[in-house]
Amino acid sequence: MNWKRAAMGTAAIAPLVALLAFGMTRNPKEILSPLPGRAAPDFALAVMPMDVTDGAPEPASTDTVRLADRRGRIQVVNYYASWCLACRDEHPVLSALAPRYAARGVDFVGIVYKDSPSAMRRWIVQMGGQTYPALLDPSARSAIDYGLYGVPETVFIGADGRVVKKYIGPVTHQVLTSTLDSLIALAPAPPVQPVPADTVVR
């Protein structure tokens, strides 16, 4: 028995097995967002008109939500779509909590991701209505700005205009209340720094 060789072989191979074992404990689909802590990318999106009779031509939106105008209030930005099954789980929770938190300085907005306004409207009616505005983002530019991987995703933005948290998947009552309560409890944060210049990648 050549123990030296055996030891060398094992030493070469052990890290590989350890690495694979480590891999088993990880979910490759969970990706940390670089956004928390940074200034939230601004958006100005048209509010989807809700009172439209089915089949009628799509009216032009009369209202726009601009994120920058809402500085000083906490924002919950929810990306969703009518074709998204998991969105059905979270929508009632969001719709129930939005009015309750409005008085405490929190705004909710939904951003429609890759869906037609008519399908989205039908879905919202089917879900029993929505207590906060639905915004249209036909070119998905805000979705890209927020590093969206899919729907549903929910972004929490502090009163100082910084992203606090990006939640992937259907958000729960517990996640919403605990995140928002701790945000409200927080003392006013220091003023926002300008958008960090993107670090150049070599």
């Binding site: 028995m1 050549n2 123990w3 060789r5 055996a6 072989g9 094992t10 097995v17």
Partner: peptide
């Protein structure tokens, strides 16, 4: 892996 390394070392 362990089995193969042992065999290879044993038959060096």
């Amino acid at each position: 892996l362990v089995f193969s390394i042992a065999l290879l070392a044993g038959r060096s």
